[in-house]
């Protein structure tokens, strides 16, 4: 595998994992515009554990996922009091506060950032990404996933049908936070250097866009959205500025032509029936 290809694949893996973290929350109809904050928590947890305590890689990754999950569990109770635009603003504020705390803390390197002692290969990122994708599909296929879909489609009706709305939303937010922490840990280990400025509002915006453009109805959405927006610019080999300009144009066009995202349940049903039941068409 060439250096370029493995670099692109590693970024793809990290983006896909990150997209699933936001997707799990979005699948219950909650928009999390603070992804970068949770990713930063995971990245710094991973860096400190491997630098100060010298823990092995798999343990640091597990701890960054646990810390991301624990913090989002605690945050979930106040944040999920809010809805819609207020939730968008609250999660946005959390990401800004996390970045602010990191910038102000000498222990975390402040604005100069932090060097991570451990290192992982691209293969590790890809294996973890595949596990997370399968986990995403698995969660959506369980009863919890069904309840999440119900809350996503109509909160009031789901509540009436006996779905514990609050428990579902809190657990989705917690799972999302821990996956975001995991992606942060992988980022720290792969790039070997982290700084608070990287985890900015743009990162949170982009990952939310991957998910919404991919589609929140099925677990295919984040996989396709993140892959599409990571690989297409690489394939076109265009400069950074034009890449984001075209990204913007695609977003506006998508919202006009297909606001529900690339993958929807209807589209999937149609594809499956074409692929697997040719006889019935005769």
């Amino acid at each position: 595998m060439s250096g370029y290809l493995s670099g692109v694949l590693a970024i793809l893996g990290i983006n896909v994992i990150f997209a699933y973290s936001i997707y799990i929350t979005a699948a219950t109809g909650q928009l999390n515009l603070g992804g970068a904050g949770f990713q930063a928590i995971g990245a710094y947890a991973c860096a400190i554990l491997s630098n100060e305590l010298g823990l092995p890689i798999y343990l640091t990754l597990i701890f960054s996922a646990i810390l991301g999950g624990a913090i989002s569990f605690l945050i979930a109770f106040p944040v999920l009091r809010t809805k819609g635009v207020y939730m968008v603003l609250a999660t946005f504020a959390i990401a800004e506060i996390v970045a602010g705390i990191i910038l102000n803390s000498d222990f975390l390197g402040g604005p100069t950032g932090m060097i991570v002692n451990n290192y992982i290969e691209t293969e590790v990122v890809l294996v973890v990404a595949i596990i997370v994708v399968f986990l995403g599909f698995y969660i959506m296929s369980t009863r919890i996933g069904l309840a999440m879909r119900a809350v996503h489609d109509d909160e009031a009706v789901a509540d009436l049908m006996g779905v514990n709305k609050r428990a579902i939303q809190v657990s989705a937010f917690t799972i999302g936070g821990s996956i975001a922490g995991l992606s942060g840990g992988l980022y720290a280990l792969y790039f070997g250097f982290i700084e608070a400025q990287y985890f900015n509002a743009n990162i949170s915006i982009f990952v939310l866009l991957y998910v919404l453009i991919g589609g929140t109805q099925t677990a295919w959405g984040p996989l396709l959205g993140a892959s599409f927006f990571t690989l297409i610019p690489e394939a076109l080999r265009i400069g950074d500025d034009w890449r984001f300009f075209i990204f913007g144009v695609i977003i506006v066009a998508m919202m006009i032509l297909r606001p529900e995202g690339i993958v929807t349940r209807d589209a999937l049903d149609r594809v499956w029936s074409k692929l697997f039941s040719r006889k019935s068409n005769v």
């Binding site: 979005a26 109809g29 928009l31 819609g84 635009v85 968008v88 809350v151 996503h152 489609d153 109509d154 909160e155 915006i205 866009l209 919404l212 453009i213 929140t216 109805q217 500025d241 034009w242 984001f244 300009f245 990204f247 913007g248 144009v249 695609i250 977003i251 506006v252 919202m255 006009i256 606001p259 529900e260």
Partner: peptide, 23 residues
């Protein structure tokens, strides 16, 4: 389109325009 995130449509396309103007 019968989806809880449909309220996010203008929000998302305004994010798209943010990228367009900035870049």
């Amino acid at each position: 389109h019968g989806d809880a995130t449909e309220h996010a449509i203008p929000l998302v396309s305004s994010l798209g325009f943010l990228l367009i103007f900035e870049y």
